[in-house]
Design a protein around this nucleic acid. Structure first.
Lengths: 145, 145
DNA sequence: CCTGCTGTAACTGTTATTGTTACAGTAAGG
DNA sequence: CCTTACTGTAACAATAACAGTTACAGCAGG
């Protein structure tokens, strides 16, 4: 296992917040979330910082500080999370420029780019169809099943 | 840009082979392909070795050695290439096991796995619809456009 | 002013990837 | 059988991403 798990961590964070949100508590700390994810609070804070930039959570400073969901779990799609964690495209083009003197070297990048864009859009469509509320429901169902 | 470009390299390799295949020449060397991709022949040979394991190309040793497409370009889908280069899943689950004492920690992995599998399948559907022959056609069109 | 948590820099260990050199293995063709 | 030209692969370096960790300044509620 080497691939990045930022998507998983971010969804876990939001799902956990959605759970306590439903229970009426609204301000939670990175330490509490870190306990559920079983990692370091700084990792959680880094994830939350990104989620905040995207407007998915809000932060409160000072004593009694902590985090709150900025939207209802039903209105947060996994696509929103994907946008936060995936700066890099699914597939990378060549590291260096291919040989422009070769017909394939010259024309393949636009051709590939088109395919890659279509593929990314398929991913986005899939992730747009699932909300944090859906994940929470499935999570609680899986737990008891 | 850091993401892996193995998909791009493998498709480039096959597309180049499809081009010379159409021109009647059938045995090509890693050096020739490396010139088009503008990289080291060993990188190409590594890619070709993987493609060979999947049965997409065949190799000939000795003097006059080289590589040949094992199938017609129309019958090689980008999905076949994806299977070759993508050992790792699109999204990774947690690195360590999440807290099993927490309802979210306990149930989120099966819930996420389901979403991730669906997403991967969307990617596969997209890539299944495009062949190396399609890429070659688009590549030559892009070159002149 | 205390207190508790955030925000973030800095550093480590691990791992993937690309590029590179080097060299043994292999078989076609004279 | 020997030359030749290319494959197959190990080994290594450089780069970069990532997860995890420590440390500490900043902030605001009470």
């Amino acid at each position: 296992m080497s691939a990045n798990s930022r998507m998983t961590v971010a969804v876990h964070v939001l799902t956990w917040m959605a759970l306590v949100h439903g229970r009426g508590r609204d301000v939670v700390t990175s330490d509490q979330i870190a306990t559920s994810v079983a990692t370091n609070p700084v990792v959680i804070r880094r994830s939350l910082a990104d989620l905040r930039k995207a407007g998915l959570v809000t932060v409160r400073h000072g004593a009694g500080a902590g985090w709150t969901l900025a939207r209802e779990p039903e209105s947060i799609a996994l696509l929103d999370v994907y946008r936060v964690v995936h700066a890099e495209p699914l597939f990378a083009l060549h590291h260096g420029e291919p040989n422009q003197a070769c017909p394939v070297g010259r024309g393949i990048q636009p051709a590939l780019r088109r395919v890659y864009v279509d593929t990314e859009e398929a991913v986005r469509r899939e992730l747009a169809a699932v909300s944090i509320a859906d994940v929470l429901r499935d999570t609680l169902a899986a737990r008891s099943g």
